[in-house]
């Protein structure tokens, strides 16, 4: 059995960290052999990190329990979901805490029964409730824009003639696909909106090539989020990735429609 303890130094005499997400080291101790490994925590970089990374580190070390001063509810939820027991309010040195845990004193102090490391089943009720709640939130977040798109398409259907949309697209396969990719680049948001708009564009007689380029560019190329991507991943990366994705959206459109026509020719 292995336990992970956040600590301020990479040894057994280090003090137990007050917070899982901010401690410099994660000391992993094998209770059978008492062998230990001190891993530098992602928090040690001193930069703002995603708390989930410390959780991933603990999971990747295949620990059975995490003993810490404090653990955020989110981190605790993910650790528990991975079958890792979390004990908070722990203090002292790493070796003291390990000894207390081995003797069962820690568990008694906290009123926790010493159970074998049975993993939670994935179908337990809290997990299902959490999945329903998360999905509901995601769905509700998606709805306002989706309703806006429905209403806007209704306006288009009532006020814009098919001839007008057709006039925007020249009928030239290359130019239309390029135009579709440009429209996809300008807009951003949930891909569901691009499918609905793309489907309606098809109704208006716009080619499948242009619609495909539009759908792919909608997600992979982002003019709106370009500043955020530059700030996170660097100017060169963001520029090269977006330019390559733009060209790739056109290539994907041609290969997809080509393959579709080929398959239709074979089977239909």
């Amino acid at each position: 059995m292995k336990i992970a303890i956040p600590a301020d130094k990479p040894d057994l005499e280090a003090k137990v960290g007050t917070r899982l997400g901010t401690s410099q080291y994660l000391v992993v101790v094998d209770l059978k052999t008492m062998a230990f490994e001190a891993v530098t925590s992602p928090a040690a970089s001193g930069q703002s990190i995603s708390g989930i990374e410390v959780v991933v580190l603990a999971i990747s070390k295949k620990v059975n329990a995490v003993l810490t001063g404090y653990c955020s509810p989110t981190a605790e939820k993910y650790l528990s979901a991975s079958g890792i027991k979390v004990l908070t309010g722990v203090s002292g040195t790493v070796s003291e805490v390990v000894e207390q845990y081995k003797n069962g004193d820690l568990l008694k102090d906290m009123g926790v029964e010493h159970k074998s490391e049975s993993r939670r089943t994935k179908f337990d009720r809290p997990a299902l409730f959490h999945a329903l709640k998360t999905s509901f939130n995601q769905f509700v977040n998606l709805l306002p824009i989706l309703v806006g798109v429905f209403l806007l398409i209704g306006l288009f259907n009532a006020f814009v003639s098919k001839g007008f949309i057709s006039s925007l697209f020249s009928g030239n396969r290359v130019l239309d696909t390029l135009l579709g990719a440009c429209f996809g680049t300008l807009f951003a948001g949930n891909p569901i909106n691009s499918y609905i708009i793309g489907g309606e564009l098809l109704e208006y007689g716009v080619s499948l090539l242009a619609v495909t380029a539009f759908i792919i560019a909608w997600v992979t190329v982002g003019l709106v989020q370009l500043p955020a991507e530059i700030s996170a991943l660097g100017f060169r990366f963001a520029l090269v990735r977006n330019a390559a994705s733009f060209l790739m959206s056109i290539a994907i459109a041609f290969t997809t429609v080509g393959a579709l026509n080929f398959i239709k020719g074979l089977f239909f």
Binding site: Y195, R241, A244, A251, T256, A259
Partner: peptide
């Protein structure tokens, strides 16, 4: 909207395309 044949082909080419973009980023 587009039928399962189209979606299946598009998914395959999107995944392949992403690898192509990854290669461009790797080189450039």
């Amino acid at each position: 909207y587009f039928g399962w044949t189209y979606v299946l082909i598009l998914v395959v080419f999107t995944i392949l395309g992403s690898i192509g973009v990854g290669y461009c980023v790797d080189v450039l």
